Simulated scan of single mutants.
Amino acid sequence: MANFFCGVDGGGTSCRARIVNDNGTVVGEAKTGSANILLGVELAMSSIQSAITQAAEQAGITDLSCISVGLALAGAEQKSAWLAFMSQPHPYQHMTLNTDGYGACMGAFNGENGAIVIAGTGSVGIVLQNGQQVVIGGREFPISDQGGGAVMGLRLIQQTLLAHDDLRPSSALSDYVFAHFNNDLDEIVSWSKTAKPRDYGQFSPKIFELAMQRDALAMELLQGSADDIERLILGLARKGASQIALMGSIGERIVAWLSPAAQSLLVEPKADAMAGALLMAHGNHNLYPLSR
């Protein structure tokens, strides 16, 4: 029976799976919903299995037990969530789980020493040195993840409410957000009671768009996120990192907002987090040891 390897990159917004054969040729790829295990291990497993199943169908794989899976997932740094996720049954030959930051760093430097800042829905900084990882930030929304889209969106909602109360000037961006909620303050408040990180993060494209049009609020928010990302970059440099890859949907677009000192530390990643997860699928890269 042929062996296949699957890399999964799962965050607060989406889950991507890529399957390769023994020769490293991509034979299937798919994308589904959120796979942040802190939002529910069953929900994350459902998204992951759906993505892997879709990718396997593309590859013509009917027996999932021939697939070794490397999982790079948001929320995996919390030990209780990691253990709860790994205790679930699965049909795969082998499964190893580490953080989305670990997978991104593995991909960015092809498994060799390096450092990354990833800023997508959330954010994290990570250094890999000789198999050992040091992590800064990335302790999940809303208490951490500064520089990510969810925190940016949360700040936007806060500033929109201030504008509504005439505590700061309104702008095209705050008007856009208020219109998004049908110009109903109560609707914003009700929405906030159940909003997930991806719900806050949905506003980041509009922030970038209006910042390019010199909207004052959009520029303020982008500069705040850039300052947060730069803090992570310089923090990694203090830990000995000389080359840092900036990754993620926010990170890739915010480079121009960073200082020259921070930009000088940046290098292009060699590959993405799914490539890193595929490297993980070939071995034991579990963040925590299994007790069973």
Rank of each mutant, 00 (worst) to 15 (best):
A104N: 07
L279R: 13
Q146R: 14
G24E: 04
A256C: 11
V189N: 09
R155I: 10
L154M: 14
I136Y: 09
I229Q: 02
I229S: 03
C105R: 09
I136L: 12
N98T: 12
L279K: 11
L154H: 12
T32K: 04
R18K: 09
Q263F: 14
G149N: 03
L266M: 06
S225P: 14
L167C: 11
L290F: 10
A51V: 01
R168M: 12
A195Y: 05
M274C: 15
R168A: 04
A277Q: 04
I116P: 05
Q88R: 01
A55K: 03
A261L: 13
S46V: 07
G11P: 00
T53C: 15
N110E: 08
Q49L: 13
K31S: 07
V189I: 13
F4P: 11
S225R: 07
F208H: 05
F109L: 05
R238Y: 11
Y200K: 09
N182Y: 14
L73Y: 04
N98E: 02
L97N: 00
S34P: 00
S65M: 06
G131S: 02
I67R: 04
Q78E: 13
M45R: 13
D215H: 09
I19G: 00
L217K: 03
N183H: 15
Q159Y: 11
L71M: 06
G11C: 04
G7F: 10
S80V: 10
N21M: 00
T62A: 08
S123D: 12
S242V: 10
G153K: 01
L64K: 01
S291Y: 11
S204L: 11
Q213D: 14
V267W: 05
H164N: 13
I207S: 01
N113Y: 02
L38H: 12
V267K: 03
P260Y: 13
N110I: 00
S242Q: 12
A218N: 08
L64C: 04
Q54H: 10
R238I: 07
S190F: 14
L64V: 02
Q129E: 11
V8F: 00
A256M: 09
T62G: 11
I143P: 15
P260S: 10
L246D: 01
K206A: 07
G235W: 02
Y92Q: 03
N110M: 07
V41A: 06
S65D: 00
V20Q: 06
W257I: 04
A256G: 15
E220P: 11
A218V: 01
R16A: 02
S144Y: 04
S46I: 04
A275I: 12
M45C: 06
L290R: 15
Q243W: 08
T194S: 15
I250F: 08
E140S: 09
A35Y: 03
Y200I: 08
A44T: 02
A44E: 00
V117D: 07
S190C: 14
M45L: 09
R139T: 11
L73K: 03
D63G: 10
A2L: 14
I19E: 00
C105D: 08
Q54T: 15
N3Y: 15
A44Q: 05
I37D: 03
G276T: 06
N113R: 01
G248C: 07
L162I: 06
E220R: 06
S291E: 11
A281G: 08
C15P: 10
